[in-house]
Design a protein around this nucleic acid. Structure first.
Lengths: 251, 251
DNA sequence: CGCTTGAGTGAACGCTGTAAAGCTTCAAAA
DNA sequence: TTTTGAAGCTTTACAGCGTTCACTCAAGCG
């Protein structure tokens, strides 16, 4: 009973994407509160209720914007990963390329964030609107753009551990409660990493997220005008966690 | 030319505080968007325009709420610090008490946050409203409740370093740009700490903020249901930074 | 007594998200 | 070829928002 999408469907799908793009553009250029249904519709030469043909509510639309942003971010990080691999000198130890990629991914995450502060606030900020705007998109496996984004780092991390295992805590060294949760998480993502490696992965994510969000939300401004060096410092904290001695070479 | 506040002024001051409390209560119990001027006024048996006698705008009111929350948080952490000192066994090395206090302060920060998620979102979340709602309060030295909060940790940190110096990077080991900023910051707060200690202080803050906000904003839920062990893990990362071997004793 | 001042009100403006009803257009069925 | 039905959209309406303005009322003071 599957039938090819009619011309109408294709048109409509195109419009859906247009609405999302318009909403995102307004959100970025005019601020979050300017991305009202009416403003978006106005921008598209429509009226606000028309948008209810495409989205169930204003929040639903924003959810799709979040998904769009997530795939955008993932694409950027992914591109940076490949660029880093291509830029590696020919003689480089192939195992070390994974480490280079991981550092590049972290830097790309920060770079994208700094260039897309409003977007970052929407997808990684406090879930002010209704607590679930981000959450559902990030977790729901059907619209799981956030999941794909995390996967990007996890795969890199896995390959790095596979090729060049770094010291991780043994299972019985992990807090029992944490161990159980890590086992469940590993099962969920179908990974074969040791639990200790997953713990280290999450520690890295805490460091990365904390540093970047602290910087972009301005909660470091009480001390620093330019938190960039703090990010590099964080990288040099992160490096030994994954068995790297020199944090990174180029900046 | 300083004259005692008239009875009217005192009454008005009392009402100002009442408005802030009402706003905060609505914010916490009904969510951020329920804390509208009209709702606040309604709750107080007034009309919305009346509030303009006390605050310049809705955002201005929220700024005062932020200040109120900050002093609340600071008070909680401060109490926890004193409680930790009192609870220390009589024979404890007096120098080590500073370490115990610092760990207690970090735990208190997390505990308060978990018990006050909406408040935390308001003061430490993404500055959605207008980018400056928090910023001004946290930085402006006249309403500097956020400053006092940071001072709490800094003083503890300073004493710990004074009594039991831990290894810190030498000045010439610090990134030059960061070094300049740290020097400016040290000058701003009138501290005598070495720049390397200030750098370590900020690294601790990054760790603490990152862990707690990641937990409370749900950005760790993709992997963990209960991020509490991650916090303890963070504490054990933080401990060696300040020269502690065992992360902490009691939970 | 009259004047000033401050607190508070009600009405209004333009904005918001959302619901209901009606209109137009067009593909597919009769 | 005509009819039907639904998609896409508009118009209208409602309740609520922040904010402004003109106004009243009571208290304080010379």
């Amino acid at each position: 009973m599957v039938q090819a999408p009619s011309r109408r469907d294709r048109l409509r799908a195109a419009t859906t994407q247009e609405i999302i793009q318009t909403a995102r553009r307004l959100l970025v250029t005019e601020g979050p509160e300017a991305a009202s249904l009416r403003a978006i519709a106005r921008e598209m030469g429509m009226t606000a209720p028309a948008l209810y043909r495409y989205f169930g509510s204003h929040e639903d639309l924003l959810r799709h914007v979040v998904g769009d942003i997530f795939t955008d971010l993932a694409g950027y990080v992914d591109a940076a990963i490949h660029a880093a691999a291509d830029a590696a000198p020919p003689g480089t130890d192939p195992d070390e390329v994974w480490a280079v990629k991981l550092i590049a991914a972290a830097r790309a995450f920060r770079a994208w964030t700094l260039a897309h502060v409003p977007e970052f606030s929407l997808i990684f900020g406090s879930p002010l609107p209704g607590l679930e705007a981000l959450h559902e998109v990030a977790v729901d496996p059907t619209i799981d753009c956030g999941y794909k984004f995390g996967r990007l780092f996890l795969d890199l991390f896995s390959e790095l551990y596979r090729c060049r295992p770094f010291p991780i805590p043994a299972d019985d060294q992990i807090d029992p409660s944490l161990r159980d949760q890590l086992a469940r998480y590993r099962n969920l993502i179908g990974s074969k990493l040791p639990l200790g490696a997953l713990q280290t992965f999450l520690r890295c994510w805490v460091l990365l997220y904390g540093t970047v969000s602290l910087e972009v939300f301005g909660h470091l401004q009480f001390a620093l005008d330019d938190p960039a060096p703090m990010f590099e410092l964080m990288l040099s904290d992160l490096a030994p966690l994954v068995g790297l001695e020199s944090p990174a070479r180029s900046r």
